[in-house]
Design a protein around this nucleic acid. Structure first.
Lengths: 139, 139
DNA sequence: CTGAATCTGCGAATCATTCGCAAGTGGTCT
DNA sequence: AGACCACTTGCGAATGATTCGCAGATTCAG
């Protein structure tokens, strides 16, 4: 009995690499599978990239982590308990800024009411030009 | 003299494949490089995929075409003169719906005022669940 | 018509992600 | 503790999308 581990509780086996992947996602925020594997290697050198990918997928299925698409590159993972927020990706300098999800609430509501579309604003990045780069363009 | 071709006018050489790529982008809307190459092959069988990619990049540099990221897959190209609109991608069924860009105007304004971020709403898809799939979930 | 710079075709290289498979391990049931 | 089996892992190969290197072809200015 005793209280089951959070992974077991979701029907997953408890393996060192799985725990480490989850820990890495929680520690690094917005990390690519590659970066997560790299992090895990610090304590478990042998871990394979495929294993990182597979565990991220598994953890996502049970809702412990989620991924979003930031730049043109690959996906970026973060823990589910993290507060959801918008990602403002600058197409000019590549920086990624954050903004509270509330900024989009009226937009989300409108899409819901008019189109019946339930938006997950944090899944894809919001693309544009950051204030710094906008300034520079004026020069 | 005479009026220069729209491509020459932008400092580009006028090659058959380049014109065809541009024509294909205009004809097919939201096409992947692969689909564009396929289209071009109808009139110019020999065109190489790399050439399509290179020309799309070149055309994008001079502002004649633009690309956006719809699903997890590759980029999708469209002509610049096309009216910008939002892409509503359903994560469940994969469908891509459209919505006028005005729906996002207050959202865009807010980001601009509060964060100085100039948003290009049509570059990345808006991710979520379409009305059809939302319905099904309730059953 | 000629030359130089720009393009194109092609195959190889890259990057991110997924697969197949055999060997290893975790959890359950005795 | 011992045995079993399904789930996992490591590894290398397979994919799919995109980029690169290069030699030969083409465009366009003079």
């Amino acid at each position: 009995m005793a209280q089951p581990h959070e992974l077991r509780e979701r029907g997953l086996r408890l393996t060192p690499q799985r725990e480490l992947v989850l820990a890495a996602v929680r520690e690094l925020d917005h990390a690519t599978p590659e970066e997560i594997a790299e992090k895990v290697r610090q304590t478990h050198p042998g871990i394979n990239l495929s294993t990182a990918y597979r565990n991220l997928e598994t953890l996502e299925n049970v809702g412990l982590v989620q991924h979003s698409h930031l730049g043109h590159g690959g996906a970026s993972y973060h823990a589910s308990e993290e507060v959801a927020h918008l990602h403002l990706v600058c197409g000019t300098c590549g920086s990624v800024g954050d903004a509270p999800i509330e900024v989009a609430s009226s937009f989300v509501n409108e899409l819901s009411e008019d189109y019946g579309f339930r938006t997950d604003v944090s899944h894809f990045a919001v693309y544009g030009t950051c204030s710094t780069c906008s300034q520079k363009e004026l020069e």
